[in-house]
Design a protein around this nucleic acid. Structure first.
Lengths: 235, 235
DNA sequence: AAGTGGTCTAGACCACGGT
DNA sequence: CCGTGGTCTAGACCACTTG
């Protein structure tokens, strides 16, 4: 819990919207009202509202007010840097992680240019849902940032370990989504059922001081891939 | 050109970053310096900087400064609600749009629930790049918002027509990306070369008063699909 | 200690929508 | 006209990094 007024206001409003205390299509109280309600200044209220708009909860309309949007919350997915554990738990389906490789490697020159360092952890895991192996995750972590890893951590959430135990702050990622022909490894570790292609999500993940620390390749079975997004028009 | 100081500052900084006047990895001038440079208040500078951070140009680090990020600018894609015309022109490749259907339809009940209206325009277009048909766009527009359409407008940019001629302001969209088996229509209108699946991007587009006005289904040939994204970690 | 970004305030003026 | 959100200001205090 931070001491941020505007984040507190944001969270309270999100809660009320998700509980449907504010119905989609109706309007939020005016900035002036919220200002008195939370006993704060207008700019602080506006910071919270801008965050709501950014995340697709409301649409602000000049001269009218802030309209509550109908966001399908139930499947915020791979978007926005969620870990598989968070994602799986949000889906409420039984899931399982199988660790295939966990080893220390020294570069492959392609990765060094992306991560700026050559001593890496290589982790290969597959994700099972409903007793089928549908995602293959290949992760590379910079050893100087992640000195220790073990099977147990990999079987649970590496992100959770890094953020809560190691105090690393994951900040942002560059991502690329493409479709590629399945490799032998894909056919071995995924239940492809004869499918010839896989959806590949490649990303470079950065810490909050802007240093890259992880390269990930997430290979998804076509028919199980789904990606939901909320996009605002930039001017 | 609007009268916005902070957007003007944002645009000037973007320009300098893209021209590499500010090199990736180096730091922007401090907020205090920018404040004097642009003869403005600190909060105004900060609005511009927050927009830069939001769009992946910089990473702000407390106590240090704003670090310029190495964004691959060359292929900002389907992300962020770009029209095909903008996208194609940014790629600098010769492209062509073929209009297959342009007709007035009355609902199909599935769409009415999404758009809240039953009188629609249906537009089917394919997009050719390098002499191959690789994208099939199926659009439905609400007739009360879009009273007129013709072949010519569809062959160019519908968005451009709506925004500059009709004064409609596109604001945001809900999107879903999946992979589906190719339909007969796909095989007919796309050069699939035997590929069995297509990447499907479905979206509902809203105007700036939050009213939905368009449903789009964009069907892409697997091997030509690429989606680049910049994602910030939400807390 | 000096410099950086992060939060917050109280007030001002503007642009837009509805009455 | 009033109420709404959009922009801007000048100043304050705090938290963090660096010398």
């Amino acid at each position: 819990m931070k001491n941020n007024k505007y984040q507190a206001i944001y969270q309270q409003l999100v809660m009320k919207i998700e509980k449907q205390d504010f119905v989609a299509g109706s309007k939020l109280p005016s900035e002036h009202d919220l200002m008195e309600l939370f006993d704060t200044s207008r700019e602080t209220v506006r910071k919270a509202l801008n965050q709501l708009a950014q995340n697709g909860y409301i649409q602000k309309v000049r001269g009218k007010g802030s309209i509550v949007l109908a966001r399908d919350k139930f499947d915020f997915p791979i978007s926005g840097l969620v870990s598989f554990k968070e994602l799986a738990e949000k889906m409420g389906r039984p899931w399982q992680t199988v660790v295939h490789e966990l080893e220390s490697v020294v570069d492959s020159s392609d990765l060094e240019s992306k991560l700026g360092e050559s001593e890496l952890w290589k982790v290969v895991r597959s994700r099972r849902v409903d007793d089928e192996s549908i995602i293959l995750d290949k992760d590379y972590f910079i050893k100087s940032q992640v000195p220790y890893l073990d099977q147990d951590i990999c079987k649970n959430s590496i992100y959770n370990y890094l953020e809560s135990e190691q105090g690393l702050q994951i900040a942002f990622a560059d991502k690329e989504v493409t479709v590629e022909e399945a490799t032998d490894e894909d056919r071995q570790l995924l239940d492809l059922n004869g499918l010839t292609h896989v959806v590949v999500v490649k990303s470079i993940v950065h810490l909050d001081d802007a240093s890259p620390f992880q390269y990930t390749e997430s290979r998804h079975r076509l028919d199980k891939f789904r990606f939901v997004d909320f996009a605002r028009r930039m001017k």
